[in-house]
C-alpha cells in the first residue's frame, strides 16, 4: 500500500540526466510507476528546473567519470541551477554518482574515495536509518535494517576527524551500513566508509546524498520493496 499526503498529490520531482547517467531511467521508473509521483526529466544542458518541488541526481558515470567521480558534472549548466536552488533551500537528493556530484559541488561535506578493496562492489547491503531530524530518514524505524543494493567503485566516505564529529553531533548522518540485524560494525562496512556512513545531509537538512540505490528495491518484481520507504521520504522532505 502506498501512503500519500493528499495535499502533495501534485508534487513534481525533477530527475537530471547527465551524459553517462545510467540509473536515471531506473529512478524515473520507481518514482513514476512504483510511487505514482509526477516526474520531470531534466537535461544537463538545461538551465531551467521547471518549477519542480525536489531534484534527484541519479547514479551512473557522468562524463565517464574518467577524472574523479562527479568532478566534471558539477560544471554542467543544470548544476549551476541546482546549486542556486539548493542554496535557496531547495530539496535535492543525490544517489550514488549523484551523491559524488553533490560532494564535488560543495553542497555536501566529505569525499567519496575508492573502496577499501579497490574494487567495484555490487551487492545487497543493509542500512540503518539514523538522523531523527533530517526529514528523509526521520520517519523511518531506526532499529530496523533496510535491504538496499550498492553498486560503486568510489563509495568510501571520508571526512576529517573534526568535521566528522561535527557532522555526527549535527545529526547529519542519514544512513549507516549495518548487518541484517541492524548491528553497525566493521564487517558490515562494505567500502571502508568513516563511521559506516552510507548517506549524509547538509547542515540545512535540505540536501541529501547516499551511495546505496533505493530505486533498485522498489517492486515485488525485483523481490525487494525496502527502497519505497526511503523514496517516500521525499514527500516528508517536500512537506517539511
Amino acid at each position: 500500500m502506498i501512503l500519500r499526503f493528499p495535499e502533495l498529490s501534485k508534487m513534481k520531482i525533477g530527475v537530471v540526466t547527465f551524459p553517462g547517467s545510467n540509473c536515471n531511467m531506473d529512478i524515473v521508473h520507481a518514482l513514476r510507476n512504483n510511487l505514482q509521483y509526477e516526474v520531470v526529466e531534466l537535461w544537463h544542458k538545461d538551465s531551467d528546473l521547471q518549477g519542480v518541488d525536489a531534484v534527484v541526481l541519479p547514479g551512473g558515470f557522468s562524463y565517464g567519470d574518467y577524472l574523479r567521480s562527479g568532478a566534471i558534472a558539477r560544471f554542467s549548466p543544470i548544476m549551476e541551477e541546482v546549486i542556486k536552488y539548493a542554496n535557496d533551500g531547495g530539496k535535492v537528493l543525490g544517489i550514488c554518482n549523484g551523491f559524488q556530484i553533490l560532494c564535488e559541488a560543495g553542497l555536501l561535506p566529505g569525499t567519496l574515495m575508492h573502496n577499501e578493496s579497490r574494487k567495484f562492489i555490487c551487492k545487497n547491503v543493509y542500512l540503518l536509518p539514523v538522523s531523527r531530524t533530517a526529514s528523509i530518514s526521520a520517519d523511518l524505524d531506526d532499529k530496523a535494517a533496510l535491504k538496499i543494493p550498492i553498486a560503486h567503485g568510489e563509495g568510501n566516505y571520508f571526512l576529517h576527524e573534526a568535521e566528522l564529529s561535527e557532522l555526527e553531533s549535527n545529526d547529519q548522518v542519514i544512513f549507516r551500513y549495518c548487518d541484517e540485524n541492524g548491528k553497525v560494525n566493521n564487517s558490515s562496512n562494505p567500502n571502508g566508509s568513516a563511521n559506516n556512513i552510507a548517506g549524509v545531509c547538509n547542515v540545512g537538512k535540505n540536501v541529501f546524498g547516499m551511495m546505496p540505490h533505493p530505486e533498485r528495491a522498489c517492486s515485488e518484481d525485483l523481490g525487494n520493496t525496502d527502497g519505497l520507504a526511503i523514496l517516500r521520504g521525499l514527500e516528508t522532505l517536500i512537506k517539511a
Binding site: N22, C23, D26, A30, C122, N124, E215, L222, G223, N224
Partner: peptide, 29 residues
Amino acid sequence: KKWVWEQYDSMVGTLNRTTNRPSDAGVVS
C-alpha cells in the same frame, strides 16, 4: 564466484529478478 560477479553491476536497469531469487538461469522482466 562472488569475487568475480560482485565486480559487475548486476542490477542496473531494475529488471534483474535473480538478485533476490537465485535461479538456474538469469531471469529479467
